[in-house]
Nucleic acid binder design. Structure first.
Lengths: 140, 140
DNA sequence: ATGAATGCAAAGACTTTGCACTACT
DNA sequence: AGTAGTGCAAAGTCTTTGCATTCAT
């Protein structure tokens, strides 16, 4: 099941949050992104959909999405970047330290056994994705 | 092969960096920690070993260690936390979002197949560990 | 000896918060 | 209508940087 914009918006609504223009715009910007974006970038892109989007709202929306496990924030060189998952099942995000590009990697049996082991130690992972930061093919 | 304090110091030296008292103190503090620490905490603990350690040096040392893949920085609630690996092979770090405690999880076949897949997409992971942030057994 | 590394303090960057106003439900 | 959500700007944190001095090689 893919996390389309509509699915994300629906999840927001289901969680009892209001579906507002700025939130829609932020989600839209995140979904389109092929790389992880910092809050400033998200704000700029969101403004193309809905002119008035404040940086504070971007931060607030990101917190909300992260709370729901719909996006994650990675730290690259001290700075915070955010990305959404296009898949809702447990999988890997490979984040390039240079270009911030994202490669999503299927979970298959490796992650399944990972999930079983997480259960066995009683650890509740709040994310459906695992971030690996490194250098991608093209940037080496 | 475990990453003892001496191994970490050696790695520093091998990489051409000088082995100074402050750096030793930071490494020592990180190694003893059973949970991820923020820079301020690292600084305070390091001062027990070597009285004069500036926060700036902590940041500089963390950058250095991360560069060498000897420590990683996780983002929890917008704040940056650091942790070292006690193992040098690819494995998982389970970081509790509440107590910041760390559970290290063996890699075994799951991570081995992960490594193979990383190779196949040409992605160079700079970390030997994968961070998973969630809520641990005791904090639920 | 000599240049890398340090501490301090100042500068800079990132994130959160307060408040009057707007707009979902 | 009523309240959650918003933008703005100010406040608060976290991180980096400049520079004279110290210290490892």
């Amino acid at each position: 099941m893919a996390n389309t914009v509509e699915n994300l918006v629906q999840a927001l609504s289901d969680a009892g949050y209001r579906v507002t223009q700025p939130r829609r715009a932020v989600i839209d910007a995140l979904s389109r992104a092929r790389r992880s974006l910092d809050p400033e970038e998200i704000c700029q892109r969101a403004r193309k959909t809905h002119a008035e989007v404040g940086l504070a709202t971007v931060y607030r929306t990101l917190d909300m999405l992260q709370e729901l496990g719909l996006c994650s924030r990675v730290q690259i060189g001290g700075k915070g970047y955010a990305l959404t998952c296009s898949e809702s099942r447990l999988h890997y995000h490979l984040v390039c330290r240079k270009c911030h590009g994202i490669v999503e990697m299927e979970a298959d049996d490796a992650a399944d056994s990972l999930q079983r082991r997480l259960d066995s130690v009683g650890f509740k992972s709040q994310a459906h994705a695992i971030e690996l930061v490194g250098v991608c093919d093209r940037c080496q």
